[in-house]
Design a protein around this nucleic acid. Structure first.
Length: 171
DNA sequence: AACACGATTTCG
DNA sequence: GAAATCGTGTTT
């Protein structure tokens, strides 16, 4: 029987958690009770105050506040006025880090992913450890992955735009 | 109160 | 190659 990841899993460093999420199962219970299992195929790590590509690098604001909390919660935000990004907060309370979910088997791209899964601002702060409508389970089969630079963050400059913190499942 | 812009996607 | 579209943080 599949096991849901607990608080301890999410409380580690984002550079450890982000690649571990590749190949794992994102479980979604729709409002009508329908359960869907998505295989995570792509993630990116955003690492705290130093990482200039991370929203938390400029300090805590109403928007990114959840990233400063305990690991295991969702950080949702709107980009370009139309796409919701789903991030999994990692590390202990006070250390702002998060994993951006960029793809599942059925959808490639963070905006398409949230549209498919059906999550938006109402899921900001959702706790994956206890939620009844969304969480992540161990798939049981380890997935090999390839790391490369993150997408769309050139503005962060070096060395951040070159850090290989994007993880893509191998075919 | 006004402004600039983004961890993207889609269309021409 | 460029538009779409709006919440958020910053400047006035």
């Amino acid at each position: 029987m599949a096991r849901r990841f607990d608080r301890t899993f999410y409380s580690r460093d984002v550079l450890e958690v982000a690649p571990l999420l590749i190949g794992q199962h994102l479980i979604r219970i729709a409002s009508d009770g329908t359960k869907t299992v998505y295989v995570i195929t792509e993630t990116e790590a955003y690492r705290g105050g130093d990482d200039l590509a991370c929203h938390a690098s400029k300090g805590k604001t109403p928007r990114n506040e959840v990233m400063f909390g305990e690991g295991g919660h969702l950080y949702m935000y709107l980009i370009y006025g139309m796409y919701w990004m789903m991030n999994v907060v990692t590390a202990p309370r006070g250390v702002p880090q998060a994993v951006l979910l960029r793809g599942v088997r059925e959808a490639s791209g963070p905006g398409r992913l949230t549209r498919l899964v059906g999550v938006d601002r109402n899921y900001n702060g959702e706790d994956l450890v206890v939620s009844e409508r969304i969480w992540i389970e161990e798939s049981g089969s380890p997935s090999a992955y390839t790391a490369s630079p993150r997408v769309g963050i050139d503005y962060a400059g070096e060395p951040w735009r070159s850090m290989p913190w994007r993880y893509l499942i191998n075919l």
